[in-house]
Structures are given as C-alpha cells and as structure tokens.
Nucleic acid binder design. Structure first.
Lengths: 175, 175
DNA sequence: ACAATTTGTTTTAGGTCTAAATAAATCCTG
DNA sequence: CAGGATTTATTTAGACCTAAAACAAATTGT
C-alpha cells in the first residue's frame, strides 16, 4: 500500500491530454446552487410573510390543505406524509393544530382502525379557496416581471436539473 | 360607492381588445414556482442528509461557518444575522452550539461591550475545509449531469427571476 | 390459534426558526 | 451633562421539522 504524498493526486487523468486534470472545485455548480437557493428562499419568505400577515397561517399548513383540496373523501395521514415529503410525526402535529382551528376533521377508518382519514371541513374549504386565490396572485406579482415564454423556458431547464439531481440521489441513496 | 356584483369583475381591461381580461389564475407562475421549489428541496435535502451522515452537522451550522471562513478577524453577530438572513436569536443559539463543539470562539469587543465578535478556531478551520470540499463534490455529483453551458444558461435565467422577485417584494415591503 | 411481522400513528428528544420582550451599552441632543 | 432614542445581543414562547422509539392494530406463516 503506497503512502500518499502531496504530488500523488488521485484525480482522474484528463482523457485528451493524458495529464492530471486539476482538482475540480465545482465552481459553476456552486454558483448555480446558491442562486437557485436565493430565488427559492426569496419567494418562499415572501409567501410565508403574506400568509402570516393576511391569513394568520403558515406555509406547511397551507401545503397540507392544498393536498386535501382535491380529495373530498380525505387522505390518510401516511399518504399525506408521503405527498408532502415530510415525516409522519410532523403531519400528526400539523393536523392536530388544523383540527383545533376547525379547518380539518379526522375520521378513523372503519376497515382499518389504525388508519386515520383527514379531510377539509366546509369552513376549511372556504378558507382555503381564499388563500389559494391570494397565493396565485402573489406568485403572479412576484414572477410577473418575466414574460410567459421566459417562464416556460426556465421551467423546462429546471426540468433538466431536476432529472440530474434525481438520477444522482437515487443512485446513491435507495439502490 | 358601488356595490359589487358577480359581473363586476375588477380585473384590468385588456389593452388591445378593450374587453375584460379573463381572471388570471397564474398557472404558469404556479408551475414554475413548484418546480423551482422541488429542485431546491431535492438538493437541500440531499445536502442536509450527507452533512448529518458524514459530519454529524447541519446545514445552518455549515452556512454559518461558511460565512466565517473568509473573515479571519471574525464577524459580529448582527452582521452574521444579516448575511445569513435569519433572526438575531437564531444566530445566538447556533453560535452557542458551535462554541460548545470547539469550532468557534467568541470575543467581546473592547470598544463596544455590547458587540460580540465570532471567528473560527484553528480546529474549526480544519473541519470546515473538509466539509467545504465534500460539499463541492456533492454538488458536482448532483448537478453534474448538466453540462457547463446549460448550468450557466440556467444561472443567467434565474438571475432574471431573482430580479423580478426583488422588484416585486421591495416595492410591496420596505418602501 | 398464535407468534412474528408489517403497517399506521403517536411520542420523544433535539435542533431550527421567528417575533416579541428584555437588558445593556452607546449615541444624540438639548 | 442628563435623559431619551438607538443599537446589539440574549431570552422566551411558540411553531415547525426530523429521526428514532414506542405503541396499537392488522396481517401472515406456520
């Protein structure tokens, strides 16, 4: 087993020159990631702020209600947890608070008494409709300075990024 | 003051036709926002996971140390809070934990005894250097399926989005 | 039937975050 | 110089989030 020295660089050889490729610091990737994060954080912070100010609610609560909107028969907590990509325990707490506020109702499944089905109450539906309208308008306001074709172009390019990340994290993670 | 009716739509008139523009549900903006959020969350979740698994640390701690990396003379807590865009109290707690771990050192300013300057310890510098290297490699892995020109193009387009959001949120918020 | 396993949820412990209240030092202004 | 305003950091209360353990109900394999 050889001992490492400073000149013993383990980077791969460059395919064309045959010389040691210089260690890659991934500057381009870092720059892209930081800007992506900035954009997401700017929008998210603004949405959170407005949800708090105008509806006295939070983004996680809004997201949970959004999942329930098109499921009139309700969703089980586990499924909700998967769709929202958060932990089970987290969903339990969120649902608890929303039930307290009268926006959600829980119903234990008759066929499987472990399972809890949760759905919007009529009041919850009304409230969510207002919030969803405002949410759409806010996005229009925040993103509106881009014309539609630029938005669609950006959307498509983010699709490439998304595919890249999925490929890399699945390869490393699950398999 | 007129009473609102269902046909009394307050949407602006279309400039060319002079007819009522149909209410905009901002579908394109919503789609773009959801994909942006997905991309950011995928990368962030993967980075958090790896920071925890390989360095037993968290993203906020890493971000804080990254801010200190190129400030050998240290930074005051308030300035750190501004740069990280999080609350003062949050920084106080993060710094407390990092000091406990021996990665940071605090120093009360001699000229202003309210102010606390914080910097990386030598050990903190060593540890951060390892983490930063791994962080860069992870980004290369996650984003690497995009070629460099595609990354730069996406970066530039996100710049347009960033400008749009800044314009809208500053107009509404501070001024 | 009944033990082992799986599935769905809740609990627990710990970290992250904010807004608001507080404490301490400094600055400003009459 | 005195007293109020401002700045800087900390504390507090509460929401959010996770991982891991605990718990309960249902299913499966003898």
């Amino acid at each position: 087993m050889r001992k490492r020295t400073e000149t013993d660089i383990s980077e791969p050889l460059d395919a064309e020159t045959g010389l040691h490729a210089r260690p890659n610091d991934h500057r381009t990737e870092l720059r892209l990631w930081l800007r992506l994060l900035t954009c997401a954080n700017l929008i998210e912070a603004e949405i959170r702020k407005r949800l708090r100010e105008r509806f006295a609610t939070t983004l996680p609560r809004f997201d949970l209600m959004a999942q329930l909107e098109r499921a009139p028969d309700g969703i089980m907590l586990g499924e909700l947890s998967r769709r929202m990509m958060v932990s089970n325990g987290n969903v339990t707490g969120l649902v608890e608070r929303l039930v307290q506020e009268g926006l959600l109702e829980r119903q234990v499944s008759e066929t499987d008494r472990r399972a809890v089905r949760v759905r919007l109450t009529p009041h919850g539906k009304t409230v969510f409709a207002e919030m969803a309208k405002a949410h759409g308008d806010w996005l229009g306001e925040l993103i509106g300075a881009m014309d539609e074709s630029a938005q669609e172009d950006l959307w498509a390019r983010l699709g490439v990024l998304k595919a890249s990340v999925h490929k890399a994290s699945e390869h490393d993670g699950a398999c």
